[in-house]
Design a binder for these strands. Structure first.
Lengths: 134, 134
DNA sequence: CTAAGTGCAAAATGTTTGCATACTT
DNA sequence: AAGTATGCAAACATTTTGCACTTAG
């Protein structure tokens, strides 16, 4: 299960090429069309779902009512924090001992076992705070 | 600007009475109807918008594609945490002082200003751990 | 040849808008 | 009376589904 298709590769290609930013499903369609490789919206959504399941990309919902954004995540970023800046969209990845503390706190006080592979926190990076964005 | 209406008070009343939980717009409609005070969906949405603007309630978006949830905030700026169990899908929402610590840590060590309104962590609740789910 | 993928049109979902009517002040 | 609010129906926007057709293995 899982054939390799031209469309699937095109979609992944776009995300890979734009690893530094997040793209909506529609933006992906537009970019593909601009390349002369139009792909149906349905197919884009279905392939995005697959890529998420494979852990190759991530979906983010940034704003109320706005469409979801997708972004290439490499494949190696599973054991750390992701901080996503709401200003510039940049994703900051890092290892941090504090993760252990958070995890312990949740278990001790809330009887909840944290899945450390899915942590994305939102906020504003120093650049954007300086620039007054957000 | 702003007349006091029966519907507006009913809607706020429901939120106030359910200050301990999240309610979707639809749930609010259902609860109102159950009270024998049916209010139109449109009106519910419009009043929710107003209450948010006044800072009396807050809107949360937990999951992709799922409806927004609204909750009475008592005028105080409570820190709000969401834990989503990957086993049963239940969302545990509550206030916790630890959020302040996490927030300070991120600012002090990572120069990142946390948006406390968008925090959802994933993991496994005690029930599901016992049941061996996940 | 068979399973999987594609893409159009249509449905589903949650939310918003147009507008005539009803209510507040 | 004048200005708001209501609520139905219809519009919206994003995402999903049904289905006949194409493509990969």
């Amino acid at each position: 299960m899982g054939y390799k298709t031209k469309q699937g590769e095109l979609i992944f290609g776009i995300l890979e090429k734009n690893a530094d930013r997040h793209l909506t499903a529609e933006e992906i369609c537009v970019l593909l069309k601009a390349e002369g490789n139009a792909v149906g919206t349905t197919t884009v959504y279905r392939n995005l779902e697959k890529l998420i399941a494979e852990g190759k990309i991530r979906r983010f919902r940034l704003e109320e009512g706005e469409p979801a954004c997708y972004q290439y995540m490499g494949g190696e970023c599973h054991e750390h924090f992701h901080l996503k800046c709401l200003g510039c969209g940049e994703i900051i990845h890092f290892e941090c001992d504090y993760l252990g503390e958070l995890s312990e706190h949740l278990m001790a006080h809330h009887d909840f076992e944290l899945d450390r592979t899915k942590i994305t926190l939102y906020g504003t990076c120093s650049e954007c705070r300086k620039a007054g964005v957000v």
